[in-house]
Amino acid sequence: MSTIKMRSKESNGVVTVKALIKHPMETGQRKDKKTGDLIPAHYIQEVHSKANGKDVITIYWGPAVSKNPYLTFKYKGNKGDNLEISWVDNQGNRDSKTGTVK
């Protein structure tokens, strides 16, 4: 299952995109309560979105972004646009999802 849930809606030529990504967003500063060891940093560093193959936004995230991050942005677009959101984290994991603007 994709880690990305997204919704997009067009109104007056502006598309509002809302997305939720499932990710632990570990800062690397927390300790395991049982062992006292540091939990290694594990967070999304970059999110990228394209509409019909054109770059819409590039987002850089640090560890301060909340667990299971929420994201919203707007762009000039239309109903039926092919919208892609992709992410990559500091451990090299990645995922992407494509949807159609309503």
Partner: peptide, 8 residues
């Protein structure tokens, strides 16, 4: 293409 409006 972007509108300057973001949230997180």
């Amino acid at each position: 293409l972007s509108e300057p409006s973001i949230g997180t």
